[in-house]
């Protein structure tokens, strides 16, 4: 076990998979000579050469589609978006091509591709560069959507994503690249997609959190423990397909649930989880499902305003206390 950052864990995952499978290649803006806008791909050009690690023009729709086409005929591309904000330009290829190809071809053309890059709230880059859009992708059958919250998850899940035969949207949290944690050294260490992780066990309230919200939920749980409230923190890790069973089991145990996410609340993943809980565990609820989401505004630049938008420990604690009828 080595203690490394999420950035390093992702780098290891890509390096190991490039070495493992000749069909895997990496492309995107600044991934090669520049070593990656966020340095996730550092050193890969030197190690694997320009055939495998490819700098693209700024042409998101183009290289996303090129990746899908290459995946149709036997390659396994890793396509990096400098941030997922730019993937919006490429959504036609992700949604209309990658997600649906297998289905509309009657099972003939699967698309083994990973679209990855940072997403979610960044620091003070205003509205176009700081947003969580995972629910867009999670909406579409045919895509898998993964959001790791720890270095070990980042590495294990990215390796699984690269080996997966379907298109995977892999969203790294921009603020979390420097977060450290222990990662197994085994080069065959993977974490299966679609399996939630109980980051902390508890009995009174379930907190479902992903990505940036996981460390915040865990901090909130620590503080709540001091107040006599035992929280269970569940990180779905893959939001499509969503491991709803693990969430439902937890809710049946705790009877109360807080759903934390940094994205906008409208039509978000929390709305989906909430509906699933209603459908499958309503009789176990002692309080309404409580959502803690990013405030429903475009991200502002000013620091004080930005801090108001992204949910923090206090907001999670307040939500937990509310569903536990403590205030």
């Amino acid at each position: 076990m080595a203690t490394i950052t999420i950035r390093e864990a992702l780098n290891q995952a890509i390096r190991e998979e490039l070495a493992r499978d000749e069909r895997v290649f990496l492309m995107g803006e600044e991934v090669a000579a520049y070593n990656g806008a966020y340095k996730v791909t550092k050193g890969l050009l030197d190690e694997f050469g320009p055939k495998r690690v490819i700098d693209t023009p700024i042409t998101e729709l183009g290289f996303a589609g090129l990746g899908v086409g290459a995946a149709m005929v036997g390659l396994r591309p890793i396509v990096e978006f400098i941030t997922f904000n730019f993937s919006i330009l490429a959504t036609d290829q992700i949604v209309n091509s990658a997600a649906k190809m297998l289905y509309m071809s009657g099972g003939q053309y699967n698309i083994p591709i990973v679209f990855r890059g940072p997403g979610g709230s960044a620091y003070q880059v205003s509205s176009q560069h700081s947003q969580a859009i995972e629910s867009w992708f999670a909406y579409f059958p045919g895509l898998k959507v993964v959001m790791p919250s720890t270095p070990a998850d980042a590495k294990g899940l990215l390796k699984s994503a690269i080996r997966d035969d379907d298109p995977v949207i892999f969203i790294e949290q921009e603020r979390m690249y420097g977060n450290k944690g222990e990662v197994p050294d085994d080069p065959d260490f993977t974490i299966p997609l679609g399996v939630a992780d109980i980051k902390r066990e508890g009995t009174d309230v379930t907190i479902v959190a992903r990505s940036l919200m996981v460390p915040i939920a865990l901090k909130a749980a620590d503080k709540l423990q001091e107040q006599g409230v035992s929280c269970e923190v569940i990180d779905p890790r893959t939001i499509r397909p969503l491991d709803i069973d693990t969430i439902i089991e937890s809710v049946k145990k705790t009877n109360r649930v807080v759903l934390a996410e940094e994205s906008h609340p409208v039509c978000g993943i929390n709305a989906e989880i909430s509906a699933a809980i209603m459908e499958r565990a309503m009789d176990f609820l002692d309080a309404p499902v409580k959502r803690v989401s990013g405030i429903d505004v475009p991200m502002p630049y000013a620091k004080n305003l930005e801090d108001l938008v992204v949910p923090d420990v206090d907001r999670v604690i307040a939500a937990v206390r509310e569903v536990a009828y403590l205030d």
């Binding site: 589609g65 090129l66 899908v68 086409g69 290459a70 995946a71 005929v73 390659l75 509309m104 071809s105």
Partner: peptide
């Protein structure tokens, strides 16, 4: 036969990708 595609122009990057793969392979 890599298919018929319904979004105007959507198949052009895909065809480019198939050509990319031929060269890569």
């Amino acid at each position: 036969f890599l298919g018929g595609h319904g979004i105007v122009g959507g198949q052009i990057p895909l065809g480019t990708g198939a050509a990319f793969a031929s060269k890569y392979q």
